[in-house]
């Protein structure tokens, strides 16, 4: 599994998000390296289809697929959790579910 973690430094959620990703991976027994990618320019944001920080890609797919109209941007990303809460980070269960879908599809 290819795991990429993209972040924009101005947004302070990335350290906590990376720790959360690592913890959930450990809980799920996923022992793959995480490629950490710092997005610094609008050009890079367009290249990565980066709509905000943090963004987690599993095999190149966003764990929370953005709406088609979402524009690449150097900004903090808004995650809406299943219980309706808004957070700058995906919930552990959102990460877990995305990992499990990849594992089950192997």
């Amino acid at each position: 599994m290819k795991i990429q973690f993209l972040y924009y430094e101005d947004c302070p959620s990335h350290e906590q998000a990376l720790q959360r990703l690592q913890r959930v991976m450990a809980e799920e027994g996923v022992d793959e390296p995480i490629e950490v990618i710092k997005v610094e320019t609008e050009e890079q944001a367009r290249k990565w289809r980066f709509i905000g920080s943090p963004t987690i890609l599993l095999n190149g797919e966003d764990i929370v697929p953005p709406p088609p109209a979402a524009q690449p941007a150097l900004t903090c990303r808004v995650y809406q959790w299943p219980d309706g809460r808004i957070s700058p980070l995906p919930s552990p269960d959102m990460i877990r579910e995305a990992l499990r879908q990849i594992i089950q599809s192997r």
């Binding site: 903090c76 808004v78 995650y79 957070s87 700058p88």
Partner: peptide, 8 residues
């Protein structure tokens, strides 16, 4: 408006 921390 846009910041997820504010929205939280």
């Amino acid at each position: 408006n846009h910041c997820p921390y504010v929205r939280a």
